[in-house]
């Protein structure tokens, strides 16, 4: 039982770290701030979630477990708020999203 739990938690921690890494890679490699936001969002959701799940499987103290769950719940509520605030502020400042056609917004999708 213990060995299976260990294996599961290691797999979870490793894949969490992998998702965090890929998300940050997106932060570096994607073309503009709006698309980079999606990479950062990966870190906040599945990356953090899997990492914490792995730690959750390693602990036996229920107080520690609750705090870990709180961290994930907190990220789940704050991450969309910061993403939205950032996207809104960037749009308001006049920054246009990068598209295939260049930094322009077509007629049917004008910025607000």
């Amino acid at each position: 039982m213990g060995a299976v739990l260990d294996l599961l938690s290691w797999a979870s921690i490793l894949s969490g770290a992998l998702f965090i890494f890929i998300g940050t890679l997106g932060l570096l490699r994607l073309p503009d701030v709006f698309s980079r936001m999606h990479g950062a969002g990966m870190t906040d959701t599945l990356g953090a979630g899997l990492l914490v799940l792995g730690m959750l499987l390693q602990t036996t103290d229920w107080l520690v477990a609750i705090k870990l769950v709180m961290i994930v719940a907190f990220l789940a509520f704050t991450s969309p708020t910061t993403s939205h605030a950032l996207a809104r502020a960037a749009l308001k400042s006049g920054l246009m999203p990068w598209t295939r056609a260049g930094r322009e917004v077509s007629k049917e999708n004008p910025p607000s």
Partner: peptide, 25 residues
């Protein structure tokens, strides 16, 4: 842009809090 920087700092902070949790373990 400064929004790239804000985003990067926010992502940095998220990773820091995960690092603190991992260090605790």
């Amino acid at each position: 842009s400064i929004y790239d920087r804000i985003l990067a700092v926010n992502a940095f902070g998220t990773k820091t809090l995960l690092l603190i949790a991992v260090l605790g373990f």
